[in-house]
């Protein structure tokens, strides 16, 4: 497979709105307005935003579940408006959703991972091979014959990821995959995502509202009110404490501490986003 550098996803001036037809008269709510975003092959992008900021709607536009009202979304050269390419687009961009229970179809783990491949009409032997490989990648091979409903949240989510990577996608969009998990489950899923990005060079778009997760990405896009307000490396994004807070977002505790100390007139760097950086900055100050 060719994995030439360049853009895998191009979002050009898109807008999207929901219409509530039950209300009288129907209410139209603009969710995305004139938004543009390019994502390169192999990138790990976190999309931050509070609930209702439009980040989920944006995710669903990437693989043609939502079609833009205006503008275009182009995935690996295919426009999501082109219905004849829809299956190709969905193979190129896999989706993982928030609730692990509601995206597992089969009653046996391996059957579920095989689901997409069966839909694509892949040869049985090839399905077997890819299912085993995908399960090993997410570390769930020993559980291949288990019933999904008996697994933990983190394990279920890894099964869902296996079901997507079995399709050999170029890109995976994860819509708040850890929101319903406990800290251990969150860690399992984050490790899996990072490995996919680093070892298999799969492009990752991670939608989240956990700052510590976003801090692990290479690029952070902050969405608010259907627009992109910040698009930068994590350090630069988190240093804008006031802006983030005003948009209902949080920053890691160490970032907040550094920010407050700066406000108090202490000379401490503005780009502290993890423990190590905070400890060394404080040591520098205290050991003077």
């Amino acid at each position: 497979m060719e994995s030439n550098a360049g853009r895998i996803i191009e979002i050009k001036n898109v807008s999207f709105s929901y219409v509530n037809e039950v209300a009288e008269p129907p209410v139209k709510t603009q969710v995305i307005s004139n938004l543009s975003l390019d994502i390169n092959r192999g990138e790990f992008v976190a999309v931050l935003g509070h609930n209702g900021s439009g980040k989920s709607t944006l995710a669903k536009m990437i693989n043609g579940i939502n079609l833009p009202e205006n503008g275009d979304v182009v995935v690996d050269g295919m426009n999501t408006k082109d219905e004849s390419r829809l299956l190709d687009i969905r193979q190129t961009v896999g989706m993982v959703f928030q609730n692990p229970d509601n995206q597992i179809v089969a009653t046996i783990v391996e059957e579920d991972v095989a689901f997409a491949l069966e839909n694509m009409g892949v040869e049985p032997k090839e399905i077997r091979r890819r299912v085993d490989e995908a399960l090993k990648t997410v570390g769930m091979y020993e559980y291949r014959e288990h019933a999904p409903h008996k697994l933990s949240g983190g394990q279920k989510q890894r099964i869902a990821i296996a079901g997507v990577i079995a399709m050999n996608p170029e890109c995976i969009v994860l819509d708040e995959p850890t929101a319903m998990l406990d800290p251990n489950g969150r860690q399992e899923v984050m490790k899996t995502i990072k490995r996919l990005n680093e070892e298999q060079n799969i492009t990752i778009v991670l939608i989240t509202h956990y700052m510590d997760e976003a801090a692990q990405a290479k690029r952070v896009v902050v969405v608010d009110d259907g627009k992109i307000i910040i698009d930068d490396v994590p350090k630069k994004v988190f240093s804008q404490v006031e802006l983030l807070k005003s948009r209902g977002l949080d920053v890691p505790q160490v970032t907040e501490l550094a920010y407050r100390l700066r406000q108090d007139g202490i000379d401490i760097g503005s780009e502290i986003i993890n423990e190590d950086e905070c400890v060394s900055a404080l040591l520098g100050l205290l050991k003077k």
Partner: peptide, 8 residues
């Protein structure tokens, strides 16, 4: 607070 965003 499970599943809510920071503001929630």
């Amino acid at each position: 607070t499970a599943g809510l965003d920071p503001k929630g």
